[in-house]
Design a protein around this nucleic acid. Structure first.
Lengths: 195, 195
DNA sequence: TAGATACGATACGGTATAGTTTCGTAATTA
DNA sequence: TAATTACGAAACTATACCGTATCGTATCTA
């Protein structure tokens, strides 16, 4: 028995779907959601609009679906030492942000997240919150191990760690880059967090 | 001699200008820059489009000018004790953000700041940077007084303080509110900053 | 009073966009 | 082969928007 029930007719070209997704990510980064037209997506993907609307019912559907695909496999491997763990996570987070697409798309979505639109809600739930949970787990584990103070508020700690990094990313164009910023941040925070 | 050289003809109605600015702020908060049409501004202000274009040459001019008006008089009075100072500043900052318009407009502008558009640059330079400078001065003073460690990096400290607050504001809809968050944050930070 | 400017209302030109449809062709199944 | 579906290209509809212009009226200076 066949696993996939093949419909009659010419099958979908998977490379077309990928080209569309790639084009959406690129345009989201460059001009934002409101600045992105479906015609532009089609042109950039080298694809006809018909092929887009054959796969997604609307521009909103398209964007939500593609954004959801940003949930990359976030693996967190703990070294058992919180300073190294945090530096690793911050390094990866920074790389994620400076990676062309994510780092430019994220700030474009902030407004949507804030106002709680469908797109913003979806992005928050499928991209932001899972990453926060991983970081929170890392900190909670270190607290269990006795590395950090027992009365440390994990949620606040996650804010203290990610807030400055995001802020630095947002203000990037208006600030001098400090290559040791991550280290300074982690050390300054741990100064107060240690048991 | 007359101080103001009065032109011939009917004078501008100041209440019209104010109604336009108010409408822009409201719409920026509700639908963002790209979602705001000049027709909507006119309708909301109860004003004709001609009256708008008589005052501003384009939609971009209008928005930049109105945003510039957000620079409210930021007064910082130091109590001479850094914890109280920081709590006061954070309290005011939080009030500024939760104030209907500023708190909703700010996140809408983040994308513009990030990509360095004219509007974003203007907002960063005339609204964000002055506020940062005041906070930095407060921290630097406390360091001079010997309240904080001499090796404290003021720029990073400002990030550590404002980053989490901004993040909390952005994610507002997806987080439980913690009324003691400001205090927890300041205390946790001072733990590491004290001399 | 005469001239100048502001006002609201409205229409207009030009452009851009979302989403649909048509058409000729290519790829697949029965 | 015949039916079915996907593909690119392009035309099409309907709507929205920016910015300008026109018109009749109101308010000011000289």
């Amino acid at each position: 028995m066949t696993v996939t029930q093949r419909r009659a007719g010419r099958p979908r070209d998977e490379s077309v779907s990928e080209a569309i997704s790639e084009a959406v990510l690129g345009l989201l980064a460059e001009v934002g959601i409101r600045g992105m037209s479906v015609d532009a997506v089609a042109a950039r993907a080298g694809v006809s609009k018909a092929s887009i609307y054959r796969r997604w019912s609307s521009k909103e559907d398209l964007v939500i679906d593609v954004i959801g695909g940003l949930v990359s496999r976030v693996e967190v491997s703990s070294t058992g030492e919180i300073r190294a763990d945090l530096l690793l996570v911050l390094g990866r987070f920074g790389a994620f942000l400076s990676e062309l697409k994510a780092g430019l798309i994220f700030p474009r979505l902030v407004g949507e997240v804030h106002c709680g639109s469908d797109l913003g809600r979806h992005y928050a739930e499928s991209v932001i919150l899972p990453r926060r949970a991983l970081l929170a787990g890392l900190i909670a584990d270190a607290r269990e191990r006795g590395e950090l103070r027992r009365d440390l508020d994990v949620e606040i700690a996650v804010d203290m760690l990610t807030g400055p990094v995001i802020l630095r990313n947002l203000m990037g164009a208006f600030r001098a880059a400090d290559p040791a910023a991550d280290e300074k941040l982690v050390d300054a925070l741990l100064e107060g967090w240690r048991a």
